[in-house]
Design a protein around this nucleic acid. Structure first.
Length: 262
DNA sequence: TGTGATGTTGAATG
DNA sequence: GCATTCAACATCAC
């Protein structure tokens, strides 16, 4: 689920449900998901506070509290938010939940528990510490070209590296490679400038389009790659869909349809 | 039953 | 320092 467009819709969901409400209680069901506090401290630190805003960078969402401190919500593979009133609407995999003064609750669900939650006194220091790259949608073309310059890694590995540009995950990376007709195993420094510019433009287009659709996959165009993946689809030139591990992740592509630069 | 999954980290290796 | 590969995290679905 959660790549940049998905996290953007989590942000919108968070903002319209959780802002400006006092937290009367924070209940932690699974302490392991909170990485830098124990359950007791996390509850104490958030109780009585309210959220005043949120900031998204790549796949990282930072809710801001009324004392100037932040949380980090990173959704991992299966994180989700659930705003509800009746306890029967509580998710089976809720890991912690804020109870607000108005009687509603905001639960953080995560079946696989790969999510990472932190309490941060200094958000920017944390971002610097983990060397999180600039959000791809905040980046201009010249910055993108400068970051790509001379990189010896595969295009796929480059797009997935959150320290270089933040927001792209496995699905959207494949989508960009497909739509630009560039092979994901291409060596970045061997890709011509015009093609890098195309990659940049497609990144913007694809992510913006996905955000506009609320990251709801079923509303994506039928000629996007994601839907074809496991269906034995053929590219316009007749090449069959292939999969291989590239940049450490399972990657789908069309062998001859996508040009390999190396 | 085994395998892999829309993510990240840390360790080991080249 | 850079890049790659692997294991680990924990659960579910095919």
């Amino acid at each position: 689920m959660p790549e940049l467009p998905e996290v953007q819709s989590f942000k919108a969901y968070f903002d319209r449900s959780a802002l400006q409400q006092k937290i009367v209680e924070t209940v932690v069901h699974d302490a392991k998901i909170i990485r830098n506090q124990d359950a007791f401290n996390f509850s104490e630190l958030t109780r009585g506070r309210s959220f005043v805003g949120s900031y998204r960078r790549g796949k990282y969402l930072f809710p801001e509290m009324d004392n100037g401190h932040h949380l980090l919500l990173h959704f991992g593979m299966t994180g989700d938010l659930n705003y509800y009133q009746d306890s029967e609407d509580q998710s089976k995999h809720e890991r912690f939940v804020f109870h607000f003064e108005n009687g509603y609750k905001l639960g953080f669900d995560c079946p696989r528990k790969f999510a990472r939650i932190l309490y941060l006194e200094d958000r920017d220091a944390y971002i610097q510490k983990i060397r999180l790259g600039e959000d791809i949608l905040e980046m201009d073309e010249s910055t993108f070209l400068a970051i790509a310059d001379g990189k010896k890694s595969s295009l796929k590995g480059f797009l997935l590296n959150q320290k270089l540009l933040s927001g792209v995950g496995n699905l959207y990376a494949d989508e960009v490679c497909y739509q630009t007709q560039i092979h994901p195993a291409s060596v970045v420094k061997a890709i011509p400038k015009a093609q890098l510019q195309l990659i940049f433009q497609k990144l913007q287009d694809i992510l913006q389009y996905a955000i506009q659709k609320g990251a709801y996959y079923k509303d994506y165009p039928p000629d996007w790659l994601w839907e074809w993946r496991a269906k034995g689809y053929k590219a316009p030139d007749g090449s069959e869909i292939a999969s291989a591990k590239i940049g450490g992740r399972t990657t789908y592509y069309f062998d001859t349809w996508q040009t390999l630069y190396q």
